[in-house]
Amino acid sequence: MTETALAAPAYAPHRRTFDYGKLVNGFFWLTVASGSVVFVEPSPYDILILVTVLLWSVRGFTIHRAILPFVLFLSLWTFGGFVSLIPYWNEADPVGFMYHTLFISTTGLFYALFLTAQTSRRAELLLSAYAVSCVLASAIAVTTWLSAFDGSGEWIKDGRAMAPFKDPNVLGSYMVTGALYLIQRLLLGRFRLWWLVVPSIMLILAALFLSFSRGSWGAMVVSTVMIVAFLIKTADTRRMRLRVVAGAAGVVFVVFVGLMGALSVPDVRDFFFERAHAEQDYDSGPNGRFGNQERSIPMLLDLPNGFGPLRFRDTFGLEPHNSYINAFASNGWLGG
Rank of each mutant, 00 (worst) to 15 (best):
M1T: 11
M1W: 14
E3M: 11
T4L: 15
Y11L: 10
H14K: 12
R15D: 13
K22P: 01
L23C: 07
L23A: 14
L30P: 02
L30Y: 06
T31G: 05
A33T: 05
G35N: 08
G35I: 09
F39Y: 12
V40S: 06
D46M: 02
D46F: 01
I47D: 02
I47V: 14
L50M: 12
L54F: 12
L55F: 11
V58Q: 01
V58D: 00
V58W: 06
R59C: 01
T62L: 10
L68D: 00
L68Y: 04
P69K: 12
S75K: 04
F79P: 00
G81M: 07
W89K: 00
A92F: 10
P94K: 02
V95D: 02
G96F: 05
T101P: 00
T107P: 00
T107I: 14
G108S: 15
G108F: 09
Y111C: 03
L113H: 11
L113R: 14
A117Q: 14
L125H: 13
A129C: 10
A131Y: 05
A131L: 05
S133E: 04
S133N: 06
C134V: 04
L136W: 14
S138K: 13
A139L: 15
V142D: 11
T144R: 15
S147F: 06
F149V: 07
E154C: 00
I156D: 03
I156L: 07
G159M: 09
R160N: 08
A161P: 08
M162Y: 10
P164G: 04
D167H: 15
D167Y: 13
P168C: 03
N169W: 07
V170D: 00
S173Y: 06
M175Q: 14
L182F: 03
L182G: 02
I183E: 14
F191K: 15
R192Q: 12
W195M: 03
V197D: 08
M202V: 12
M202Y: 07
L203Y: 01
F209L: 09
L210S: 02
S213F: 07
R214D: 07
G215C: 09
W217K: 13
V221N: 03
V222Q: 02
S223W: 11
A229G: 07
L231S: 15
L231K: 15
K233N: 07
T234S: 13
T234F: 12
T237C: 11
T237L: 06
R238K: 14
M240C: 01
M240D: 09
M240I: 03
R241C: 04
R243L: 13
V244R: 13
A248C: 05
V251W: 08
F253Q: 08
V255Q: 12
V257H: 05
L259E: 02
A262E: 09
V268H: 08
F273S: 08
H277C: 00
A278N: 10
A278S: 14
Q280I: 04
D281E: 14
D281P: 04
Y282R: 15
G285R: 13
P286R: 13
F290C: 00
G291V: 03
N292Y: 04
N292F: 02
Q293E: 14
L300E: 04
D302Y: 00
D302T: 10
G308D: 02
D314K: 06
G317C: 05
E319W: 11
H321I: 04
N331F: 05
N331C: 07
G335V: 02
G335M: 03
